[in-house]
Amino acid sequence: MLDEAEREFAEAARRFARARIAPGYMARESTARVERELVREMGALGLIGADLPEALGGHGQPSVMAGIAIEAVAEADINMAYVPLLASLNGQIIARHAEPGLAREWISRLVAGEALACIALTEPRGGSDAANLALAARREGAEYVLHGEKSSISMADQADVAVVFARTGGAGSGARGVSAFLVPMDLPGIAVTRFRDLGSHAIGRGSIFFDGVRVPAAHRLGEEGAGFVQVMQGFDYSRALIGLQCCGAAQASLDESWAYIREREAFGAPLAQYQGVSFPLAEGEGMIAAIRQLCYHTLRLRDAGLPHTAEAAMCKWLGPKTAVEVIHQCLLTHGHYGWSLDLPHQQRLRDVMGLEIGDGTAQIMKLIVARERAGRDAVQHARKT
């Protein structure tokens, strides 16, 4: 599956993640922050923005390398894996659509771990209907003025910069009236809140409020009205990365569970000898291995410039769903120990569950697959009848 250079990179990433990231996984739930010094260490090792253009401060590697980094980090802490994932998602949009000087400034900072990025698309009335935006961007000379709210934004209160999608067209302009902007989070008029969520506390999720925020017109990403197409193309990428993020978390619980049933005895024998204990873990290994293959296949399609929308949707649908089921089984395998807050399975379960919602629900992903395979017109006709 991986060539020699990719395997070497994966091994180096895992060594670092196990030594530096994994020991703090459970503690980060209490601090509810990612450590900036640790992020800078990740940047120095090339774990952030491996896929971003070298000319703009990235490493110029295939997107498969970004997936390898994200899976390795997620094995240690699924939350820390958001850092390279959001850097790649936002960085690709910035690299393709920002003015070169602006792109070089922010991509170099993201790759070095000197800055964190978030993507601001979802709004209180939106969600799955991603084009239904109310946040307005009004042109005033050499600036745009932003008014409105973004909601359910990962890393809202930690990000240094946001890729923000706003309505520049009229109320009835739909997706064609959406534009994208690169917005530093320290501009006057920006306020943030943090939600009280079930999991992913180290990353956090919240609302961003824009009250007359003035953004230079040079910070618009691409043509006016082209923002929705940009984000939809980006999601084809991030959905494969999220699948690998979930595989990493599930693999960590599987590895811990295999070690546990080798050591734990019942009725005079190791638990591993009982098929009722070992078979569910074997099933989990098979499912995670299959999804991992699908995710890397999707990234290789992307690197080859081939269509991969349906495959990306499959990654996003199957990855979180299966990881939740596998981690839940690992928790049960540990018996009454698994029910303790002292073990990480309960935290991983809560952290992964949020990805069943964020970046597209299973229902939306299945709709995308159906459109790609049957055709958009056929699917829309079926919904009307």
Rank of each mutant, 00 (worst) to 15 (best):
residue 123 E to D: 06
residue 80 M to C: 09
residue 135 L to T: 15
residue 121 L to Q: 03
residue 67 G to T: 07
residue 150 K to S: 10
residue 224 E to W: 01
residue 115 A to D: 05
residue 146 L to D: 02
residue 19 A to I: 01
residue 112 A to K: 14
residue 74 A to E: 05
residue 248 G to C: 05
residue 207 S to V: 02
residue 155 M to Q: 14
residue 333 T to C: 11
residue 233 Q to D: 15
residue 196 R to T: 02
residue 114 E to T: 02
residue 193 T to V: 04
residue 60 G to T: 14
residue 12 A to P: 00
residue 38 L to I: 09
residue 92 Q to C: 00
residue 323 A to S: 12
residue 103 A to E: 07
residue 14 R to Q: 13
residue 381 H to R: 15
residue 181 F to A: 06
residue 92 Q to I: 00
residue 170 G to Q: 13
residue 375 G to K: 03
residue 54 E to I: 09
residue 221 L to R: 11
residue 98 A to Y: 04
residue 338 G to V: 02
residue 234 G to N: 09
residue 230 Q to M: 12
residue 179 S to R: 06
residue 156 A to R: 02
residue 118 C to Q: 07
residue 19 A to L: 13
residue 158 Q to G: 06
residue 326 V to Y: 03
residue 294 L to C: 11
residue 145 V to N: 06
residue 117 A to S: 15
residue 117 A to L: 06
residue 95 A to M: 01
residue 154 S to N: 09
residue 78 I to S: 06
residue 195 F to H: 14
residue 281 L to Q: 04
residue 178 V to W: 08
residue 17 A to C: 11
residue 120 A to W: 07
residue 369 V to F: 05
residue 41 E to S: 08
residue 47 L to I: 04
residue 182 L to Y: 10
residue 44 A to E: 15
residue 354 G to D: 04
residue 129 D to T: 03
residue 121 L to P: 00
residue 328 H to Q: 11
residue 219 H to D: 07
residue 229 V to S: 15
residue 262 R to S: 01
residue 134 A to D: 12
residue 197 D to T: 06
residue 381 H to E: 08
residue 33 R to F: 07
residue 63 S to Q: 11
residue 26 M to H: 01
residue 107 I to F: 06
residue 14 R to G: 07
residue 349 L to N: 04
residue 330 C to T: 02
residue 61 Q to T: 08
residue 66 A to V: 06
residue 58 G to D: 14
residue 123 E to A: 04
residue 176 R to C: 00
residue 97 H to G: 01
residue 97 H to L: 07
residue 329 Q to K: 06
residue 339 W to I: 01
residue 179 S to M: 05
residue 336 H to R: 02
residue 68 I to A: 11
residue 270 P to V: 06
residue 95 A to W: 02
residue 114 E to L: 11
residue 30 S to T: 08
residue 334 H to A: 05
residue 311 E to Y: 10
residue 15 R to P: 05
residue 285 E to R: 14
residue 309 T to L: 08
residue 157 D to H: 14
residue 227 G to C: 11
residue 277 V to A: 13
residue 208 I to F: 00
residue 132 N to I: 00
residue 51 D to G: 15
residue 161 V to T: 12
residue 26 M to W: 02
residue 187 L to Y: 08
residue 355 L to P: 09
residue 32 A to K: 15
